[in-house]
Design a protein around this nucleic acid. Sequence first.
DNA 1: ATGAAAGCGCTAACAA
DNA 2: TTGTTAGCGCTTTCAT
Lengths: 336, 336
Amino acid sequence: MTIYDISKKAGVSIATVSRVLNGSDKVRPSTKKKVMDIIEKYDYTPNAFARGMGLHSLQTIGILCADSSDLFLAKAVYYLEQELQANGYESLLCCTGYNLELKQNYLNLILSKKVDGIILVGSNFIGTTEDENQYIKDVSTQVPIMLLNASFDYPNVYSTLCDDYTTMFEATESMLDSGIADPVYIYNSISYSGRKKLNGFKDALKKHGISDIENRIHKYDGDSQQFNEIADFMDQVAKEAPPFHGVIAADDVLAVGVVKYAQRNHISVPDDLSIIGYNNSMLTTCCIPELTSVDNRLETQTHQLVQTLVGVLSGEEMPKKSIFSGKLIKRGTTLF
Amino acid sequence: MTIYDISKKAGVSIATVSRVLNGSDKVRPSTKKKVMDIIEKYDYTPNAFARGMGLHSLQTIGILCADSSDLFLAKAVYYLEQELQANGYESLLCCTGYNLELKQNYLNLILSKKVDGIILVGSNFIGTTEDENQYIKDVSTQVPIMLLNASFDYPNVYSTLCDDYTTMFEATESMLDSGIADPVYIYNSISYSGRKKLNGFKDALKKHGISDIENRIHKYDGDSQQFNEIADFMDQVAKEAPPFHGVIAADDVLAVGVVKYAQRNHISVPDDLSIIGYNNSMLTTCCIPELTSVDNRLETQTHQLVQTLVGVLSGEEMPKKSIFSGKLIKRGTTLF
DNA sequence: ATGAAAGCGCTAACAA
DNA sequence: TTGTTAGCGCTTTCAT
């Protein structure tokens, strides 16, 4: 069933059918109805390829993320897909893994499908050197690139993110102000936002005149889905590092691992150990006490990102960077 | 940059360029090289639409799932995307939500993008009546439909699933055999696999001569990401239902909620209460004691599904139904 | 308001 | 081995 078949059956030209299909207002209501009836009767759907050839668009957005099974990324992908759907776009999902080398390939691949735009989900797409980010510059000449939870200044690249630095700085201060002068920081990612958070922690300690900062920072390199191993890691930290009565984790997963460490070692939370997580995920309520965590406004971010993208695609001038503030959600693992 | 530009610059016809592009062996190596050089020099990528029009395929598979932020579904989507990628296919993701009415629309939408096949992730796409499943029949005439964790007999519909009935039957028997004669069952979904699991539980109880079965089954209708509310729900169950010393949950999320309920009420797990979860997700290690859970071989399933799909698309005869057995992974919430 | 016709960029017979 | 050419199904001027 093609546009020709429909036009024949309706007794009009293919141009008229095309107009009806594309909602042109230059069609007499009566002929419009006539055509619509035939279309519905035969359940006709236009061929997307042929259409795309004319339109140069399939109303599709490419979404790249490292790992859609990561709690945070999965939620982000979910929100994005919903928002895009609501705006008439579909989502081409591509999970790249954490291997930077392959990202270029994936980007080109997805680009060859003629997507209207590309969303890079998560800050691990941004490297520290100009060279590492060359692939983004290349692609940005062809379609707009949207960064979620990361930032990169370049034409046709738009960023939506949480001010992780300030948010983490303030979260750390909350803990310091509550009288805990010896917090440690644990993290597992040195992505763009990972670095911001780490700096927020460091600077808060500096401001409060705490020395020995580097010894208070610990990187977990194990499997991020294994709470046991995180707890084991904390055992190690407790053994080697200076004593601590507070832990700030770069991710809820790590924080839950810390809760587990405390339970295993009969350390009372929050009395003897305060814990702050990050992302305010579903994990915050899985433990007792429940996890105090930083909400980075993911839903707000994804909404803003898609609005920006839609604006850009329709030729409007849109903000290059949208920054939101995170918010500490107080629950049971902290005294303050 | 089109195939014409390339052909001109290379001094050959577009047909030759097309042959090079499609890896035809009927091209002299020297001309092949000549063309390739030009292609690389100008970084030319063929237009996917035009190509799709000729090829009638864009090597893309549509993936439909209710909610890609659900722990289980997210993992499934992740594995599927990886497998498809490895086989040269891309994934068009579409999250339909749990509203059955919209599924038909989504299916048609995704079909209009000329996907080569469609994967329905999760058993909530299959209804109980013929009528509910009509939309699948309709679409199956156009492209193969792959069901993950569900089953439906129809031409061009292929199923890959875990034998949830037997698996749950056996898990329940394990608990009964350990001396717990009064288990309760909690669930939150009445999907295809949800019903299978429930029946497995029921029949195990029947076999062991346990009466009062219906009072041992409880449906949780709240938010599946809120462990608190699940624990609240369990408080209610404990109040209203006959006493129990074992809980079998249809999902790890629910089971973790039960662990939480036990902790809050100072019920010793597993001594006074045994708990079994389902899916063997990352949540199994988030609590103390760790969760005994059923592994339903998701990765194996997704692998098999994609292999079947690839086979079907290349015209091979493939099994209509691939069934795997789940396996109880024993951890700390059970004595056996 | 409607139709005729020229592409869009590619694939795949068919010729040479 | 290579080139010529006719589609593929649609959008979009340009006429009418």
